[in-house]
Design a protein around this nucleic acid. Structure first.
Lengths: 243, 243
DNA sequence: AGGTTAATTATGTATTTACATGGTTTAAGC
DNA sequence: GCTTAAACCATGTAAATACATAATTAACCT
């Protein structure tokens, strides 16, 4: 494990420090409650200023991964939220875990101009085409979800990739792009004509709509995913624990 | 509204600045998308350093109340009602944090026989009555959620409690029952006639449905909560990180 | 011995300073 | 008139510094 900071890297020092801390605190001794090295010392060891180090620690404190106590020290927060694991399974793995065989009803890849919200998330112009993937998936007899994915041009997708492979595996293998953080928004919607057609339901019927903002190792946006789930066939579960 | 910072106050300047900003951004012109004064200028106006001001702004950016854009400026994010930390904040606290005043449209407490699924979760008989609470809540002009809560008899509720207080606070203070773990299931539903009537929408319109299984300190079931959210007015957000 | 005080430790607060970087706007050049 | 470059603007990054404060520990005095 690399426990040093690269001052020549274009990645900001506080981001590097943050990532380093995320690794560091996985160490059993810290998980067990041992205090982290104090800020002044740690900053010296990493060859960054205390200000910069604090910036990194602040993030983890905000996420409630670390707890600071004045005059005492900083340690890993004992119990943190779960929910997690399920979100990092790919769709096929997720379905497999539920005992459902996945069927791909449609798979379509194209180059399109991003709409406003997509361009804004990716922080790119709406004038430049990006790769869009559309997918209708479900169980053997029931197409219950329609996915639309947009990928950041930084990744370098050509549109000719093998999208039948598990997506994140492919992105990691072929493009060294690793999904690291995902922010999701779940809401209920009326199916429009297009979605209703795909999911074989009435226009206006409820669908569970999931927006997914996926970020890579460097916290940079990499994928924008929209999922329309047929109402009766999908339940989103979250488990959270008081900290 | 006080738009100045008291340097003699024992309250840290960055906290004062944060509070001040929270007020400031409620101003319609900022809600409408006007850029905030730039950091250097605003810091000067408040007579604090830019670093301190940034500390305050950072918090709001973290909460996604503000958006910063390099070389451009800082503005209010078009905030939807979301449920990021909803998990462990009460509804009213969460809404307050979003600057929305909570209105209780209906509040009804009764003793009822539990149905099959409730009894099964609580591991009790369907022959014994338990406390049921129904609540229609929302913003000042929009009732957007209907809650139904069942409470485990172990807690010892009489039904005469002050349910206008934040729920979990009341349970903790009066009954030493602390919510510790929550398992949630989110799905989309068609509003039935009853729910549609409460939420003032058409029967058959989509609602976001959230089941919540709440456990106490000893991992024992304590509350079973059903929430029906008006589709357009609620987004459930989940943030997860690869581990 | 026990309680009070002081020293130590590590985080908390705050400022000043400097330069980098990504957008936007303006001006120059052809 | 269009493209390109320069200037400008506001946020982003980083460091050095200084002192305040809460928690712990050690020293002290009765």
């Amino acid at each position: 494990m690399k426990l040093a900071i690269d001052h020549k890297s274009p990645i900001p020092l506080h981001i590097q420090a943050e990532q380093l801390l995320r690794e560091l605190i996985k160490d059993p001794v810290y998980q067990a409650g041992k205090l982290l090295p104090n800020e002044v010392e740690l900053a010296k060891k990493l060859a960054i200023s205390r200000t910069t180090l604090r910036q990194a620690i602040n993030k983890l404190v905000y996420e409630e991964l670390l707890i600071r106590k004045k005059g005492f020290g900083t340690k890993v927060a004992n119990s943190r939220i779960s929910s997690k694991s399920m979100n990092w399974l790919s769709f096929s793995q997720e379905m497999k875990a539920r005992g459902i065989t996945v069927k791909n009803y449609e798979l379509h890849v194209s180059w399109v101009f991003p709409d406003e919200s997509t361009a804004s998330f990716f922080d790119i112009s709406t004038e430049k085409k990006i790769v869009k993937m559309e997918r209708l998936r479900g169980s053997s007899d029931n197409p219950f979800v329609y996915f639309i994915s947009y990928f950041h041009p930084r990744i370098g997708l050509t549109g000719e990739e093998d999208f039948k492979r598990p997506l994140y595996e492919m992105l990691e293998d072929e493009y060294s792009t690793i999904a690291n953080l995902s922010k999701e928004e779940i809401s209920a919607l009326e199916a429009n004509k297009f979605i209703a057609g795909k999911l074989e339901i009435e226009t206006g019927s409820p669908v569970l709509f999931r927006k997914r903002f996926v970020y890579d190792q460097g916290e940079r946006p990499m994928e924008y995913n929209l999922g329309y789930y047929k109402a009766e066939s999908f339940v989103y579960t979250v488990e959270s624990r008081r900290t």
